[in-house]
Structures are given as structure tokens and as C-alpha cells.
Amino acid sequence: MELDELYTQVITENSRSREHRYQMQAPSVVKEGVNPSCGDEITLQLELDGDVIKDAAFIGDGCAISQASANIMIDLILGKTVEEAKALSGTFMGMIKGEVTDEDSLESLEDAQAFQGISHMPSRVKCAVLGWHTLEEALKGKDGNT
């Protein structure tokens, strides 16, 4: 993979964005995610209203890929139901594994499509999925189905 495809403007700008990067007042769910191999860390905070993600934020320390991916993820899941957020996460993971390739599904990921090429860089895949993986952990058992 070429560096231009990896460090796109979308990714570099999101990696430094402060939009969703803050400590929430009273989150209803807090989940920490760590990449033991490279030390990327995020703490994801969600405020759930019934099964709707009313607010979300994160704090973290890590590479541009992990931090940008978390920021873009929060853009996507704000206002979504738990089930919709889980579906997005499934699509994102599928895209990274190269299993989800159809345009409509990819469209639903909006800016998060920027990470599609990372599947060619196995050492950085963990960085891209850290936020989504943490989200899945945070949402476990939150929609009554699992």
C-alpha cells in the first residue's frame, strides 16, 4: 500500500480532530480498549437513551490510524440505535477483512471507507479496528439480543 493511500487527508485530519475527543460528564457506558502490541489506547464513552446512542466521545493515545478511526466511528454512530451501530461495526470489520466489497454497504461507512486499504498492512489492522472493537465490547448485551 502506498503512503498516500494510507495517510489521506481524511485520516490525518481526523487523527487530530478534537470534535469527539473529550471526557463526558456522565456517560452511561465506559469501555477501554488497548492494542497490546503497539500500545494504542482509547476510552470510549457512550450515553444511551433507551437503545439510542444519544452521545459519544473518546479519549485516547495512539497512532494516527487508531485515533482517526475512533473519531470517524463516533461521527457515524451518533444518533444510531445500538442495533444500527452493531451493523455498522460488522460492515467495517467485513471491509477490513476484504469480505464486504459491495458499494452500498461500503457507502454506509462514509469516511470510514478511508481504511479500506489497510487490509494490505497486517501490522496496522489492529490500529484501525481498535475503536470498533471497543464499541462492540461496550455494546455487548445492550440491545436485549445478546
Binding site: 502506498e2 495517510y7 498492512m121 496496522r124
Partner: peptide, 13 residues
């Protein structure tokens, strides 16, 4: 202002 992983990735290119 650059995380070491990103530095290492750029160098590896």
C-alpha cells in the same frame, strides 16, 4: 506530534 507507529510506517516505505 507524530505517533511512533506512524513514523515507523512512513520510514518503512
Amino acid at each position: 506530534d507524530v505517533h511512533p507507529h506512524d513514523t515507523a510506517t512512513v520510514l518503512s516505505a
